[in-house]
Amino acid sequence: MSDETPYARLSPDLVLDAVTACGLWPDGRLLALNSYENRVWQIGLEEAAPVIAKFYRPGRWSDAAILEEHSFANELADAELPVVAPKLFAGRTLLHHDGFRYALSPRHGGRAPSLESADQLEWLGRLIARMHAVGARSSFVHRGRLDRDTLIRQPMQAVLTGSLLPATLAERYRHAVERLDRLVAARFDAVGPVRSLRLHGDCHPGNVLWTDAGPHFVDLDDARMGPAVQDLWMLAHDERAMEALLEGYASMRDFDHAELALIPALRAMRQVHYAGWIAARWHDQAFPAAFPFAAEARWWEQHIADLHEQANEFEE
């Protein structure tokens, strides 16, 4: 399997064969779900509810790191948290078929949460607090931390060594990222030590599905060690929303309000990482199709301007 075409052989027939290898009986219905980092399919089964098949991107995580994700998801589910956890087959959650690693999980549908609703935000705050209470029990060993090396320096190198950034913008880009990196480091130093715990890691509205029974969380693929506020800030579009989240959170678990000062740093790190992620994955044919703007010089000019704007906000 080529690193340049990681999913070239992942045909519908291979997906169905992988599900059949688990002793399940697909009925031939496949629905590709919106996922770029991995490949995710909804598979219809004969006389049973559909399952979700997640095929992991080759080379991104080690087997040990994926198993930590699965273990965390099952630990959360055992604590009666509404988290979609992988199914067990012959005592294993990480499965292998024809060179691919994959996992199967139950299908849980839902709609996007209403982030204008204080009641829903408080509900989410309570659930995230309970998730963090479980996350604080132990540490990840293989999944790394939410830090500047992972979210700034490595993405910067991916952009500078990739083919997307016009050569005429390289120094301007490097200067913008290095400037922002220094300010992010200063902000973390100013806040001081904060408690690091196992996080969802990518707790944005797309990874929360709401039903009449309430919300549930999906996709722990970015689970890492980091500060609690990481799982809150992407759900809060303004101060009132954050207040509602924290009201719910504080009813279940103490929150260190000093972490709120990290939000601009976390937002900046995510912005740098986003561009680096696209650059690092550009050889995957799904990325040029989904992010065509990244091939245009004007997008990189705007990205550089946005990084300086973030830096200006820090300095102000």
Rank of each mutant, 00 (worst) to 15 (best):
H308C: 12
A223N: 05
A297F: 00
V184E: 15
W123G: 01
R270D: 12
D284W: 08
P193S: 14
E239K: 14
Y36N: 12
A228G: 05
D202H: 04
H200Y: 00
E47N: 12
H132W: 02
P205F: 10
L169Q: 08
S11H: 13
T150V: 09
L245P: 05
F188D: 11
A223H: 03
G110I: 06
V159P: 13
L104K: 09
R130K: 13
L260T: 05
D306I: 13
D254M: 02
W123L: 09
A213I: 02
L180G: 14
S2Q: 07
R92H: 13
A77G: 14
S62T: 15
E259R: 00
L67H: 09
S117Q: 05
P50N: 01
E116Q: 08
P166W: 02
G226H: 04
I263R: 07
L16I: 11
T93L: 03
R143A: 01
D284Q: 08
R153G: 00
R111N: 13
S35E: 15
V83E: 13
H308L: 11
T161I: 03
V84Y: 09
F72P: 11
A170T: 14
G59I: 10
L16H: 07
P155R: 09
E178G: 09
A286W: 05
A213M: 03
L24T: 03
L232E: 00
L197Q: 03
Q154H: 13
A133C: 05
A48T: 06
G226C: 01
A90C: 03
A185S: 14
V141R: 13
D306K: 10
F217I: 03
P166N: 11
D238T: 09
L266C: 05
A236H: 01
V141G: 06
